[in-house]
Design a binder for these strands. Structure first.
Length: 284
DNA sequence: AAACCGTGGGC
DNA sequence: TGCCCAAGGTT
């Protein structure tokens, strides 16, 4: 497993020697529900502009949202800015190493907290993302697809597979994740190229169809409030001055849905303003 | 705890 | 083409 990883691992920015913990944190938040290929260029630009948390904290949230551009889920940009502010003020501008301290930061949950502790600091924790859940579902549980994510179940399962040694455990976390991303993929797994095919419970059972509960499918995007929010955000990102309501109208025909989307953006803090002064990104 | 939150690539 | 999927988190 670890041998396979050392041979096959992709050359990614966050695997470079000396890559800062701050970079790991930024990369992990960017990678939430977002493909590696789309993250890499944004990550490099981000770290060049904001080399430390304090640098980001010194910029207005609007700059973070603009730099986020079209990565998606712009709340992440706002959360990252808030996390950087907390790190700069409460943690001496040093990304926390403790999992509970990381969990206390906005936008950081079970996966991201452990990913930072393990990949930035080399500590021994189970790291469970969608790739890991799929590999465990197949290799250990003998199921074709993972069920709904459940930390209470997923973390102990990964823990049971981790080597005792700290460095080996970190390498195993990365290796299982990489295996799920490159070989044990969701649709057409490349079992011929799998280093643990001879130990895979799913393969041994003859690849049975999945019967248990599946992870819930995403709601349709076309025509959704999420789509309208995205269109409004693109409008706000593209303007240096407040955007009037009349300028938002053209982005979507349904006025009621438009208003609902704008109201939700205001509630999320991704937009500020009113009809009189116009709407813009937060903090100038 | 189910629902919501963007965007784009692959097939 | 339309659907599945992607290094999840928050409410």
């Amino acid at each position: 497993m670890i041998t396979w990883f050392r041979r096959e691992a992709r050359d990614l920015p966050w695997r470079r020697p000396g890559f800062p913990a701050w970079g790991t944190l930024v990369s992990e938040i960017m990678l939430q529900q977002t493909q590696v290929a789309r993250v890499v260029p944004r990550l490099e630009a981000w770290l060049t502009r904001w080399p430390t948390p304090a640098d980001l904290a010194a910029s207005p949230p609007a700059d973070a949202v603009r730099a986020w551009d079209r990565l998606g889920y712009p709340r992440r940009a706002l959360a990252l800015h808030a996390a950087a502010t907390a790190i700069a003020t409460d943690h001496g501008n040093v990304v926390p190493r403790d999992v509970d301290a990381l969990l206390a930061l906005p936008g950081i949950g079970d996966y991201t907290a452990r990913a930072v502790a393990v990949f930035a600091y080399g500590d021994r924790h189970p790291v469970v993302d969608v790739n890991v859940r799929r590999v465990l579902a197949r290799a250990v549980l003998g199921q074709g697809q993972p069920g709904p994510a459940k930390a209470k179940h997923d973390l102990p399962l990964m823990e049971s597979v981790l080597p005792a040694d700290r460095e080996d455990a970190a390498a195993t976390n990365a290796a299982v994740m990489e295996l799920g991303a490159l070989v044990c993929v969701s649709r057409a797994p490349a079992c011929d190229a799998c280093p643990i095919a001879d130990r895979c419970a799913w393969r041994a059972a003859g690849y049975p169809e999945h019967d248990g509960p599946r992870a819930p499918r995403q709601a349709k995007f076309a025509g959704s409030d999420r789509q309208v929010r995205g269109l409004i955000m693109a409008e706000l990102r593209g303007s240096d001055v407040p955007v009037m309501r009349s300028e938002i109208e053209p982005v979507w025909p349904d006025a009621e849905q438009r208003d609902r989307a704008l109201a939700s953006l205001l509630r999320d803090g991704l937009a500020v303003g009113d009809d009189a002064s116009g709407y813009q990104l937060p903090g100038v």
